[in-house]
Design a binder for these strands. Structure first.
Lengths: 323, 323
DNA sequence: CTGTTAGCGCGTTCAC
DNA sequence: GTGAACGCGCTAACAG
C-alpha cells in the first residue's frame, strides 16, 4: 500500500479510501490509483482490513454432512448469495458431532462477521453463547430468541400419513433420522400425532445415520413388523429401503407403500418416490440474506422465517394390500 | 489479551506463547493462563495472528458446482483433512465460469495460506499467476510445473470402449461433458483413440452442462444415431439418458448399453450402472495433504500425483443387439 | 523461562 | 479533497 501511494504520489490514506470509500475522493484520483494498482498488482488485504475495522467480510457455515445430498444445494445457494455481497464463506463438516461443530465454530469465530449453523447439533446453551459473541442464524434448529429459518415439514408429513390412511393403510412405520435433528423431531412428532388421531398403529424404527445402506438393512425388520407402509426421515434412507424390499420380492407400491422426505431424488427412482418436497436453495439463500441483515443490524432478535413444504404424490404409494 | 495478561500477572508475550508455543513456557504458567482464559472467555484472534505472522491457517477451495454429486465427498474429505491441521476452509462455487472463479480466488487470496482449485476453468496463465502469489494445488487440471492431483480416468474409459467392442458393439456414442474440463478432454480423447484403434465408429454428442435432464433430452438423438452403446462423461447424465431411453421402450442392456463415469450412483440405478469408479475422497484428502506440504515448503514444484480408476462391470452393458 | 519493543496492513479519527 | 498519526490483536526478535 505504501508502495502504491508512493508510485501514485499520494498518501496511504488516499489509497485506502480509493478502495473502501471511493466516493470521498476526487474521481480522477481514484482512477489513477486503480490504474497503478492494477499495474503493480496491489490488492487490499482483507485480513488487515478486518483487524482494523472488525468487519471480516466472511461468514462461517457448518453442516452435519456435506455429502448428504440435501445440503449441497443449500450450501451452494448460500455461498452464491454471500458472494453477491462480497462475503467469503467458510465451510465446516460437523459429522453430526456436537464437539466437532464446537471446534469448527470456535475456529471460525475470530475471522467471521457471522455464523450460519445448519441443522446444528449443539446444545441450546452453546448456541446462545455463540449468538452472544457473533451474529448467528440457525437453519432447521429452533432456539427461541435466535434468528432462524425452519423448513416446516411437519404438516406435509402429517399429510403423508393421512394420504396413507386414505389408501387403507392401518399399520405404518416411521423410519427415523438423526436423533438430534430438529427436522427429525418435527417429522416424527407429526407422524405420531397424525397416526394417533386417525387410529393407525405407528412403529418408530430408530436409525442413527440416514444413508442408503441403512435403508437397505431395514428391509427385514420392516417386513417383519407387519406394516404395509412407511414414512422415512429422508429420501436416501427411503431409497435404500425401497431397494431392500424389492430384493425380497416386495413390489412397490402394490405390496408396500413408501414416502420419503426432502425430494433430493426427484423422479429418478423407479417407481418415482412420493415425498415431501421443499426448496433447500431458498433456505440457503434466505438464511444468508437474514444473516447479512443481522450483521447490518437490521434484524430483530428472534426473527423466525418458515419455509413451506408439500407432499408430492408420485409412484411409491398405493392402496393397502388386501389380506 | 492485555486483560488476560493483567489478570494472570504476566506480559502479553507470555499469553501469546501460552497459545502458540506452550512448550517454551513453564507448564504451570501455561495452565494458569489457560484457566483464567477459559474463565474470562479469551480466545486467540486468528485474523490478528495471521496479520502478524503471514500464516493465515486458512485454505481456499473452489469447485465448479457444489451440487454436482462428484464434488461433495471430495470437499468433505478435504475439509476434514484440513481440520486435522487446524486449517479452516473457504469454499467457493465457480458455476463453471472462469470469471467467477477468478473473483472467488482474488477474494480468498489475502486470507489464505493456500489455494485448492478443483477442476479449474481458469486460463493456464491465470493459474500460473496465482501459483506465483500463493501455494496452489490443482485437482483434475493439468498445468506443467504446478503441483496437481489427476484422477486418471482415460485408461478406464478406454477399457470401457474395449468392453463394448468385445460385446459386439460397433457404433458407439460418447456423451461429452463441460468443454473446459480436463477430465472431459481425457475421457473423450481416450474414447476416441480406443474406438479408432478397434475400428469402431464413435460419435461425440456435445453437452454443455452435465445433468440428469441433459441426459433425458439426449435420448432421441442417441436413438436416431443408430449407435448401440454409449459412454457418458458422468453417471448423472448417463442416468438421465438411461431413463430417457427406457421411457421410449428401449431396454437396457438388451437394446442399448451404457457406461457412466465417477460412480456417484453406486448400484442404485436399475439396472445398476456399469461405470468408471474412483475415490474422490482420496483425491480430496491427498490434495489437501499436498497443499499443506507445499505450504510447509516440503513439496517440489511440479509434483504430480495420479489417482487410478477402474471400470466396474454392472448391469447396463450387454451384448450388442442383433440386426 | 519471561518481559520489552516494534511492526504486520489497513481504516479512521483528526487536522489541514 | 487529502495527509499524519494512532491502534486493531498478535508474534517476533531481542534482552534479561
Amino acid at each position: 500500500m505504501a508502495d502504491l501511494a508512493r508510485a501514485v504520489g499520494v498518501s496511504k490514506s488516499t489509497v485506502s479510501r480509493a478502495f473502501s470509500r471511493p466516493d470521498m475522493l476526487n474521481p480522477e484520483t481514484v482512477d489513477r490509483i486503480a490504474e497503478v494498482a492494477a499495474r503493480i498488482g496491489y490488492r487490499p488485504n482483507r485480513a488487515a482490513r478486518a483487524l482494523s475495522t472488525g468487519r471480516h467480510g466472511n461468514i462461517g457455515m457448518v453442516v452435519p454432512d456435506i455429502a448428504n445430498p440435501f445440503f449441497p444445494p443449500l450450501i451452494r445457494a448460500g455461498q452464491v448469495e454471500a458472494d453477491r455481497s462480497d462475503f467469503c464463506v467458510f465451510l465446516g463438516n460437523s459429522d453430526e458431532d456436537p464437539e466437532q461443530e464446537d471446534r469448527l465454530v470456535s475456529h471460525f469465530l475470530s475471522q467471521v462477521s457471522g455464523l450460519l449453523l445448519i441443522a446444528s447439533r449443539l446444545d441450546e446453551d452453546r448456541i446462545r453463547a455463540y449468538a452472544d459473541l457473533c451474529p448467528l442464524v440457525l437453519v432447521n434448529r429452533d432456539v427461541a430468541g435466535i434468528p432462524r429459518i425452519l423448513i416446516d415439514s411437519g404438516p406435509a408429513v402429517a399429510e403423508a400419513v393421512r394420504h396413507l390412511h386414505s389408501l387403507g393403510h392401518e399399520r405404518i412405520i416411521y423410519v427415523s433420522g438423526p436423533p438430534k435433528s430438529w427436522s427429525e423431531q418435527e417429522r416424527r412428532a407429526a407422524a405420531k400425532a397424525e397416526a394417533e388421531r386417525l387410529g393407525m398403529s405407528l412403529t418408530v424404527v430408530p436409525v442413527t445415520k440416514p444413508a442408503y445402506e441403512t435403508g437397505l438393512e431395514l428391509a427385514p425388520p420392516v417386513l417383519d413388523s407387519g406394516a404395509t407402509a412407511a414414512v422415512a426421515f429422508d429420501d436416501i434412507t427411503a431409497h435404500g429401503l425401497m431397494t431392500g424390499l424389492s430384493h425380497r420380492g416386495v413390489a412397490i407400491p402394490k405390496d408396500f407403500s413408501l414416502v420419503g422426505c426432502d425430494d433430493v431424488l426427484g423422479a429418478r427412482t423407479n417407481p418415482p418416490m412420493t415425498t415431501v418436497t421443499t426448496s433447500s436453495e431458498e433456505a440457503g439463500r434466505c438464511a444468508i440474506a437474514m444473516l447479512l441483515a443481522l450483521i447490518a443490524g437490521a434484524v430483530p432478535q428472534g426473527t423466525l422465517r418458515t419455509i413451506s413444504t408439500r407432499l408430492v404424490l408420485r409412484g411409491t404409494t398405493g392402496p393397502a394390500p388386501q389380506r
